[in-house]
Design a protein around this nucleic acid. Structure first.
Lengths: 198, 198
DNA sequence: GCTGAAACGGAACGCTGCTCCATTTAGTAT
DNA sequence: ATACTAAATGGAGCAGCGTTCCGTTTCAGC
């Protein structure tokens, strides 16, 4: 019951001050290194950048997925929270879905290697995959349902499948002028539209 | 001058017999290992399976892409050759495109990690990427052009982008019942259709 | 200050890709 | 049949990476 003491309301407190500081240093360093070397950057590199030992990183973030998740948590949250907002403001549910997916795609393509990691068949990133799903799948499902209900798109598409499809389309070398994920995502969404012949 | 001897007409000859044998052994072993461990399987493993040293593999196949290419060459060729054949037999160019893409997708999804390798941003597989493009891009372009000319789909889609998109959709853990690349590829093709409102 | 425990750092281990070179072996000329 | 040469071989060796382990340092409460 722990009457008056810290009961763990704020999860990031109740640790030693230096541990807190190091945690922040690691997050900052990781964010910087991820930009240039991708989310697969060597732990040693991040540790050096942060001025800590490797064990410190492993202690704070047991798996790489935990580190990546922590680095991008705010942006993932922002994307999740944008969903209902867009639905309220857009001209149609389909518009809202489009705009939300644009946000999602922008997020993925600007994070070097993130889309790759999300779909990696390695077990290293399962937790990251799970976090994305927990946070964004309901949002996507809601938008999808709204668009179906409005009669804009055909029913039957599973949100999970759609999100993975979009994520997959974002995989690949950056800055290839011949390949723009956005165009293919647009094509995919076009395929979702309710055809007039149906 | 080497009057009567082999002059090198057949490129895979003109090597010592043991080298030929080892080359075949490596290909067989690699094919077997790829099935269970994916195209990223350690060279040591393939060497052990083939009963040769690692250097032998590197000598015959300088890069991993060369090895993977050699292992799947016949299937890639078959896929390439099927294109014109399908176009001649199918009811419509769009049908032919569909069937050909089905072939392509089947090929990718049954080769563990191949789709991942094709889009990997690592330089290890650039040659593989190039080979796929050299061989299959013209076929895809031809089918696409025919479908556009028949008025079945809207013009403007680049064959390269389409192929990469399809390849990307095939990436991921095998046997996930919630994600079937075929459904998304179908959706993508649906998006290519000429809409009656255009 | 003193002390116990939390936190730390980097050496160490295992696995992998790739290279280098002493040794073996196939093919040929005698 | 034998000897010779160049092709071919194999595995030790090096470097980079993820992950763990443990002796040492540092914080925080008394």
């Amino acid at each position: 019951m722990t009457a008056g003491g810290p009961a763990g309301e704020v999860p990031s407190r109740s640790k030693r001050a230096d541990a807190q500081r190091n945690r922040e240093a690691v997050l900052t360093a990781a964010a910087a290194v991820f930009v240039t070397a991708g989310v697969d950057a060597p732990i040693r590199r991040i540790a050096a950048e942060a001025g800590v030992g490797m064990a410190t990183i492993y202690r704070h973030f047991p798996t790489r997925a935990d580190l990546v998740t922590a680095v991008y948590q705010h942006q993932i949250e922002a994307c999740a929270e944008a969903g209902p907002h867009l639905l309220a403001d857009a001209d149609s549910p389909l518009d809202a879905l489009h705009q939300w997916i644009d946000l999602f795609v922008d997020f993925l393509v600007t994070k070097h290697g993130l889309a790759d990691a999300l779909q990696s068949d390695s077990d290293r990133f399962t937790a990251l995959h799970a976090y994305f799903l927990d946070r964004l799948l309901p949002v996507c499902a809601h938008l999808l349902d709204a668009a179906v209900e409005a009669g804009d798109i055909t029913p039957g598409t599973q949100p999970y499948e759609l999100m993975r499809g979009i994520g997959n389309l974002c995989i690949g070398r950056d800055n290839d002028p011949r390949y723009d994920p956005r165009r293919l995502v647009a094509l995919l969404l076009q395929g979702l539209r309710r055809s007039s012949t149906a």
